[in-house]
Design a protein around this nucleic acid. Structure first.
Length: 422
DNA sequence: TCTGGGGTCCTAGGACCC
DNA sequence: TCTGGGGTCCTAGGACCC
């Protein structure tokens, strides 16, 4: 049996975990630049605040309802996520961290504690809550896809207490009946349109479609979905996370800019960040892509989208080299006179560092670069991110994003620790 | 005024190999 | 009339996920 453990309103729950005065109050967490709503407490959902809604459109409404907004604090959410996983790992042998707020588990093999997987899931739910303060819902089923269905049901109906199990053909049928296909794992907007156009509304109906039709119209992924819904597992737990195939750092500017200096400085920081992430994974990149664009929502502005990929002469994770090529790529797509909104850097064509092709004439340089980056990463881990940086990263940070409602880093910064009163 | 960021997988088609 | 067979690698585009 598979279980999927999903943190309820994760970002909102993280904010609440250290601030009990927020209990029972509507709270939302905003995307970078305080742009859109990306997490809502149940109270905020009840007020009709939609996921992805631009914050400025509902600012007055939120104020009138007493909604407390937060800027996103990924340092906090990342650390809380690790704590949740640690609690889960203390109770199961096999688990797969699927996203920052979700974890698949293998629920077999705990018969010594209880013959009922549902019972064991309840114990996990209680422990996560007690250890981290984060409420979770757990769906249990013979396939991952059905576990996701079960999880959704667990969340939707308060009577289930955040737990739902599907464990027989009859229960599968009952769970899929009336389940909106739009909520199925693997069905996005395009497929919803396609399926609804042919009268397929709920998951039960979808599960009865022919394999041939699904394979033809929805590729093998659709076919796997179909089989999984019928109780035939196609996906296993992925116990070892795959090495990343690409990494991206991109952010909107706090304010639109026409300045090449400002954009260059931002890009240098994003390229340096890609370098740091590459070294952390032990990977090196063969390709570097830079993109740059204006704000599509501003119809009064001229629009521009530029993108350029450079094949690096040799695969690397050396920050100064990545920054230099990123700036070179920017030079190739830069157009003067536009109001720019966002720049980004993507490294791809990744390979493990140990598979690196040796260079006949630059092995010594490679060793020096390695040592320099090791020292840079070590110094920055002691004294703070980007304390030591390449000059192009600058200090002005005119491009930095807006974060007006940022909460403290309760669990990762000494100065932000909360004080408990006796 | 104001609208997120970071990924994965699959397919088709073109260029190329022997 | 009629034009081989069996591959690989790369890229772009489209779908999806959180």
């Amino acid at each position: 049996m598979f279980g999927i453990i999903d943190c309820n309103n994760f970002y909102a729950s993280c904010e609440r975990a250290f601030n009990p005065s927020l209990n029972d109050r509507p709270i939302v967490v905003l995307s970078n630049n305080d742009g859109c709503v990306i997490a809502r407490s149940n109270e905020a959902k009840a007020l009709g605040i939609e996921m992805g809604c631009p914050a400025f459109q509902i600012a007055t409404y939120m104020k009138s309802c007493g909604v407390v907004p937060f800027s996103s604090n990924y340092t906090l959410y990342g650390d809380m996520s690790e704590r949740v996983v640690a609690a889960i790992a203390s109770m199961v042998h096999h688990y797969e961290v699927y996203s920052i707020d979700e974890c698949f588990i293998d629920l077999s093999g705990y018969e010594a504690f209880t013959p009922d997987p549902y019972e064991y899931a309840y114990m996990i739910q209680q422990r996560v809550r007690r250890w981290t303060g984060i409420p979770v819902s757990i769906g249990i089923a013979p396939t991952k896809t059905l576990a996701k269905v079960a999880n959704r049901r667990a969340k939707k109906n308060p009577l289930y207490g955040g737990l739902y199990m599907i464990n027989s053909p009859g229960e599968i049928k009952k769970a899929l009946d009336g389940f909106d296909i739009a909520d199925l794992w693997g069905i996005g907007r395009q497929y919803v349109k396609k399926l609804k156009a042919m009268g397929c509304e709920d998951a039960l109906h979808f599960s009865q479609q022919s394999e041939a039709w699904v394979a033809k119209n929805m590729t093998v992924q659709g076919l796997r979905l179909l089989k999984e819904l019928n109780g035939q597992p196609c996906y296993d737990l992925e116990l070892v996370p795959d090495r990343k195939k690409a990494m991206c750092t991109a952010k909107s500017f706090g304010e639109l800019t026409t300045s090449k200096e400002v954009v260059s400085e931002a890009l240098a920081n994003y390229a340096a960040n890609c370098g740091r992430k590459l070294r952390k994974e032990g990977s090196i990149a063969n390709l570097l892509t830079v993109f740059l664009h204006t704000n599509q929502h501003r119809t009064q502005d001229k629009q521009y989208y530029g993108i350029k990929t450079i094949h690096l002469p040799k695969a690397t994770s050396y920050t100064p080299e990545l920054v230099a090529y990123a700036l070179k790529a920017l030079g190739l797509i830069w157009q003067q006179g536009y109001n720019y909104k966002k720049v980004g850097c993507i490294v791809s064509g990744l390979q493990p560092e140990e598979h690196r092709q040796a260079q006949l004439f630059s092995e010594i340089a490679w060793e020096k670069e390695q040592k320099a980056m090791e020292a840079l990463d070590q110094i920055n881990s002691w004294y703070g991110k980007d304390k030591l940086r390449v000059a192009a990263q600058g200090y002005e940070r005119k491009w930095k994003m807006n974060q007006e409602r940022l909460s403290p880093c309760y669990t990762t910064r000494w100065s932000d620790l909360i004080t408990a009163k006796c």
